[in-house]
């Protein structure tokens, strides 16, 4: 019991808010028909995830999540929404085939949720050894430039090839119009 019992409640409330934001954002991203609302759901889920990373003792990743997912990924998807015409076609009358697909999707995702959640809840997880490092930004930087330097460089190469490839693919269709 800490000296400020209200602080515990406040922390628990903020944590539950972030959990609810994450799940609600994912639901919104998957179930709406308009794509722009779906992008907003992805942004909402990213905000919730950033909060969860903060609770997992990693404020650096929380900032990176907001920077990359909301600042880069969502904005890029919104640009594509402006360039293309992404709204889903109106659903036809529900035929037997589409109901079958819907049931199949429900069953598959339900089975995945049940099995993975059960694995997480029932799994016999090991308790770790004593922490030697604290996982600070300093530790991450040192590890990135020593132990993981090869992967770091290869990631930069992948990003450059991706940028060049994106430009090459998106540019080629322009001459045919």
């Amino acid at each position: 019991m800490s000296a400020f019992p209200a602080a515990d409640r406040l922390v628990a409330g903020i944590f539950l808010l972030f959990v609810a934001t994450t799940v609600a954002g994912s639901v919104l991203a998957v179930f709406t028909t308009r794509i722009i609302r779906s992008v907003c759901g992805l942004a909402l889920a990213s905000i919730g995830l950033a909060g969860l990373y903060y609770f997992l003792h990693s404020p650096f990743l929380a900032l990176m999540e907001i920077l990359i997912y909301i600042g880069a990924v969502c904005v890029t998807i919104i640009f594509a929404v402006m360039l293309a015409e992404p709204d889903e076609p109106r659903p036809d009358k529900p035929t037997g085939r589409s109901i079958l697909w819907w049931l199949g999707a429900i069953v598959v995702s339900g089975a995945i949720f049940w099995s993975v959640a059960r694995l997480g809840l029932m799994g016999n997880w090991p308790t770790p050894a004593i922490d030697r490092k604290d996982g600070s930004v300093h530790d991450i930087g040192v590890a990135l430039l020593t132990t993981y330097s090869l992967a770091f460089e290869v990631i930069s190469l992948v990003l450059m090839v991706a940028i060049l490839g994106a430009v090459a693919i998106a540019r080629s269709g322009r001459h045919h119009e």
Binding site: V30, I106, I112, A117, G120
Partner: peptide, 18 residues
């Protein structure tokens, strides 16, 4: 955290199919 991640995975697979 594991249950939240499992629910996000299931929702993503549902969206991928639908």
């Amino acid at each position: 955290y594991l249950v939240v991640a499992a629910s996000m995975l299931a929702l993503g697979v549902y969206g991928m199919i639908r």
